Amino acid sequence: MLHTPLRRLRASTAVCLACASLAAATPALAADETPEWTVPVSLSLVSDYIFRGQTQTWGKPALQFSVEAVHTSGAYAGFFASNVADHWLPGAAVEMDFYGGYRGKIADTVGYDAGLIYYTYPGGNWTDSVFAGYNRSNSLNTLEAYLAVSYEWLTFKTGRQLTEYFGWSTNNSPTNGGFFGDSSAGVTGSTRGSHFFELNAAYDVAEGWNLSGQIGRQYISNTTGLNISYYKVGVTRALPDGWSAGAFFSASSEPKAYDSYYSLSDGTSKHDIAKEKFFVSIAKAF
């Protein structure tokens, strides 16, 4: 068969067009593929770090960082860091949490989440309490197992502390001396096995606006006067370029033990750890 220059040009052109079409199609296919791992990162500033109704920063602001690696299977692992106050957490300036677990769905609107979280406080120890006789060595680090079940915009969560509750013991937090707001309150045995229950809600009321709420109860094993109920409501506004801003109101059952709590770092300043509080946040997601 004769191969004229025109014939070769047409064949060459056809091959080039085919290659171009394949090259154009390949990125489109890749763009449609779901990545096996996603790694959301966020940085936020809050005017007060409230954890289950109690300030962790002595009423002061906190800079917080979080990163999480999520697999398409539902497995995940994450890290969270925040500054904290040694007035409340003896010897600690930073909290670093390591967690991991598995999320999945039972039905389209029903999901679950089970995992472990390890709260750590580098350098923190009850030996740093300024109160003599209440400062036997004991780590603040706490391991917690949790389970959550969600339905649409509601989530029920429960968890159990597998170690002592942030190092609380009959030495550092006893009755008749550990809590000046209520001398009868305190620890009477091991706080291992403390647990909590909470109900969370997050509902999109309009485009870019989310209304949230929380109600919970923390039980601290072998204690009197220290269990606490906590509540929170707030609104978050999504902003351009991954920014968001929020305003929240936090309240608790305000056990008297947490009133006028004396600083563990200086022994003189006082703060109401669980008082009603309005706080705000601004965050950037990457």
Rank of each mutant, 00 (worst) to 15 (best):
A75R: 02
H87Y: 07
E68G: 04
L147E: 09
Y151N: 06
K105P: 02
W37Q: 11
T26F: 10
D113R: 07
I117G: 04
Y112M: 06
Y102T: 11
Y151W: 11
F131E: 05
I117Y: 00
A148M: 06
N138C: 00
G59V: 04
L140C: 07
V149P: 10
V39G: 03
F156G: 13
A23Y: 12
N141K: 03
G100I: 04
N125Q: 08
V70N: 14
A62G: 02
A30W: 13
P40A: 12
S66A: 12
D97T: 12
D113F: 11
P40Q: 04
R103H: 04
T57Q: 08
Y151V: 00
W88E: 04
S21D: 13
S129G: 05
A132Q: 08
Y119W: 01
P40K: 11
D128C: 01
I117L: 10
G104H: 10
N135Y: 00
W37V: 11
D113A: 12
S47A: 00
H87G: 08
Q56V: 02
N83A: 06
H87W: 10
S137F: 10
Q64H: 07
R136C: 10
S137I: 01
L89C: 03
W126L: 04
S73H: 07
T158G: 15
H71P: 03
A93K: 15
E33L: 15
Y118C: 12
S21W: 14
G74Q: 06
K60T: 06
T142V: 01
S139N: 05
Y99H: 14
W88R: 01
E36S: 15
N83D: 13
A145R: 06
G53P: 08
W58Q: 04
D113H: 07
T38W: 09
L45S: 06
V94H: 09
Y134I: 05
F131S: 00
G74V: 00
A114G: 14
L17G: 13
C19V: 15
V39N: 11
V70I: 14
Q54R: 07
V94N: 02
S137D: 07
T34A: 14
P61L: 03
F98V: 12
D48S: 03
M96V: 15
V39Y: 14
G123Y: 07
